[in-house]
Write a protein that binds this DNA or RNA. Structure first.
Lengths: 206, 206
DNA sequence: GACTACATCCTAGCAACGCTAGACATCCTG
DNA sequence: CAGGATGTCTAGCGTTGCTAGGATGTAGTC
């Protein structure tokens, strides 16, 4: 067993993660426009080319940060959902608030996940697990018998994302978030959803 | 009467608009990453510095394109709303579909309006008229007596924006848009609003 | 009509960007 | 201890947004 190259591989993996966290921290401290390959290299105390031995380019680094972010988001949402006193609407409310809290408290990370161009594959067979896990937190707020729970999850997610990004960029007033979320949940996950159950087949989502 | 400098001012205004449309056309043809100051200057057949005599920088050019876009969007939505056979939910449905159609058919323009960094002031006293006009198209789908019509409009807009941007970037499957919009409208503007009536003393139909 | 004053526009260049080739150093292997 | 592979850095390429300073042409005055 080549224990010697194992150590190298370990060090390499460690440095890989170091780059990712350095990029995230730099972005969270000064914004993504401040994350240049030079400054990032300086921060990890290596020269620029080592970045390219780990990632295909800057976009790949952003993608790695985003993927990390999805893991954190999935954990965050999962925690909120399981902390809810009861499933159903209460869980959905908890997850939704957790989602918006994540978006507002970590804007740079959220930006990497949803706004900056990344290489991540969404909604396909090669979708990374953390992405799917985050999405499933919404899906699992609905009853398994609900054939349209994925559709509901998509819509909820979209609405929350819209609220997050529009208020984050000042397109809608930043205050009153609470009110909007409450309205969405009341309308989407209110009693109506029970009536939907007997209708319509589901769409396919990979 | 300084007819001589008037002509200059006219020519200058004409060139101003020329730059804006050239930027938009270039973005729509090859994407915003292809819109560089050099290529744009070449396209309007002037040198780079003239761009800076019209705009403070590239962001200002993008902002001007975005502002133009909001005028088009407002007209587009207004047309759809007034073409609706009846006000209320039908109008909201028409406006929503028109909004998503605009977003998908003119992705580059939509990107300038909502994703790229711009200097535009939203949701403030100095909000440009076209922005407010676009927003009001949603507001006007609800009955004036509805005290929460602005809130409803914000939520509808947010949800639509979320759908547009998430599917546009492949975060959710691009097909099934129709279904999502239908769901949102049904849930937001559907029968549930009747329940709001006895709760808040208002009704949302136009 | 010549001269000054001014506005307009372009050539040339700066610093910073993402990215890469090739030289240099380091380490394991035989 | 040599040889080769591996890893890292220096240096530089092409492009970006943006700007200084000179050239060119126009307008106004004697």
């Amino acid at each position: 067993m080549p224990t010697i190259s194992e150590r190298r591989e370990r060090e390499r993996a460690h440095r890989h993660q170091l780059i990712i966290t350095a990029a995230r921290e730099l972005a969270e401290a000064e914004g993504w426009e401040a994350v240049t390959t030079r400054r990032l290299a300086e921060r990890v105390e290596y020269s620029q080319p080592v970045l390219y031995s780990h990632f295909n380019g800057k976009d790949a680094i952003v993608s790695a940060v985003a993927l990390d972010g999805f893991s954190q988001l999935a954990a965050h949402l999962s925690h909120a959902r399981q902390a809810a006193t009861e499933p159903g609407q209460a869980a959905l409310r908890a997850v939704s608030h957790a989602y918006l809290a994540f978006a507002t408290e970590r804007p740079a990370l959220y930006q990497a996940m949803f706004i900056l161009p990344t290489d991540l594959k969404f909604a396909s067979t090669e979708t990374p697990a953390p992405l799917r896990a985050s999405f499933d937190e919404f899906v699992n707020c609905f009853h398994p018998d609900n054939e349209r729970r994925e559709l509901f999850a998509e819509v909820i997610w979209s609405a929350l994302h819209g609220i997050a990004v529009l208020s984050g960029s000042g397109r809608i007033p930043p205050d009153g978030q609470e009110e909007r979320v409450d309205l969405i949940i009341a309308q989407i996950a209110g009693t109506r959803q029970d009536r939907q159950r007997h209708k319509r087949g589901s769409r396919s989502r990979t």
